[in-house]
Simulated assay, not measured.
Amino acid sequence: MELPGGLGGNDAPDGESLPELLRSWRNRAYPREVSETAAPRRRRSGLTQRELARLAGVSERWYGNLERGEPAEYSEGFLDRLSSALGLGEAERSALYLRAIGRPPTSAVAPGSAAAAGMDLTLQQFLDNQAPNPAFVTDLAWNVIGWNDPLREWFPWAAQQGNQMLWALLAPQARKQLVDWEGSWARPYLGQIRYARAQHPDDEALASLEREILARSAEARKMWNLREVHEHADGDLRRLRLPCHRGREVSVRIVALRLMRSDRLRVNVLMESGRAVGA
C-alpha cells in the first residue's frame, strides 16, 4: 500500500489521513494516570486529547492542531514523544512522520526508547536498589528511559518516558514544584543543554530539544541569551515541593553518574536530605 504523495510502505494503510490515524491510535491507547489532580472516574479505554498532549509535553491546542491535520514545524522530539505515548511500533512511527512532516524519521529506532539508549535489567536493578531515593536514567537528549518506583511517585510524568528538560522548562506545574525555579533549575538546565550541544554538535535529538524549548518559551529564550554553561548537576542541593509530599518542602542532593559503557546515558539519584543511597 502506498502513502499519499508517493511515499509508500506496506505497514501504512492506503488512503487514511493523519487525523484518522491519530484518532484511531489515541482511542486504542491504554489510559494512564496523567493528571495529578483529576478525580477517579469511570471511563472508556483510550486517551483524551488533553491526556495525550500532556504525555507528549505540549499544549492541548498544539496537539489538536496536529490531529486536525494542520501543517506546522513539528519537531522529531515531539513526534517521538507522541509515538511513545501512543505505544506505536516502528512502522506506525514512520507513518506518523511521513504524514506529519513528509519524511521518515532520521533514526530507525526512536531515540528516547529504552532499546535505543541501552537500558537493561542490570541497570534497572541498580535503580530499584536506590529506593527509597528516587532514581532515573536519561539518554543524551534527557528523555527518561528508566526509573524506579519512588521516582514515579514523585514525578508521575517521568513514567510515561517524558523528557526531563521539557517538563522542567515548559510545564506550568514545574514552576511550583521546583523551588527557586529560575535560579536553581531553569538556568542551570539550559546551561547543561548548551554544554551538551557543544559536545555533540551533530546530534539531531539535542538540536531538536534546543529548538523546541526556545520556540515555545520566551522566558527560556531570555535565559538562553545569558550564555551560561553548566556541565552537570552532580552534588547540587536543590529544593522540591511536590504533591506527594503534601505541601512539605524537601531538599535533595543530586547524585549524577555516567556509565563507563556509554557516554550517552545519565543516571540520577535524588537523595533526600539526611537519607543515604540504598538506605
Rank of each mutant, 00 (worst) to 15 (best):
S217R: 06
G183S: 15
Q173K: 06
I193H: 12
A168T: 03
A174D: 12
L190M: 04
P172I: 06
A198P: 09
K222H: 14
D202M: 04
G191C: 10
D202W: 08
W185E: 05
P172N: 12
R197C: 15
G191I: 13
M165K: 02
Q199A: 07
R187H: 11
Y195T: 14
K222V: 13
D180Y: 13
P188V: 05
G183A: 15
L209A: 09
A220M: 02
H200V: 08
W181H: 11
Q161S: 15
E182D: 03
D202F: 07
D202C: 03
G183M: 14
A207R: 06
W167I: 03
M223C: 05
L226D: 15
G191Q: 14
W181K: 05
W167V: 12
D202Q: 13
P172T: 08
H200T: 03
Q173N: 00
Y189R: 13
R216L: 07
D202T: 07
E182M: 04
L206C: 02
H200N: 13
A171N: 10
L209Q: 01
I193D: 04
K176V: 12
L209E: 01
G162R: 05
A174M: 10
S184C: 14
Q177A: 15
R211A: 00
A186F: 08
H200I: 01
R211D: 02
A168F: 10
A220G: 04
L206H: 00
N225W: 00
L170P: 11
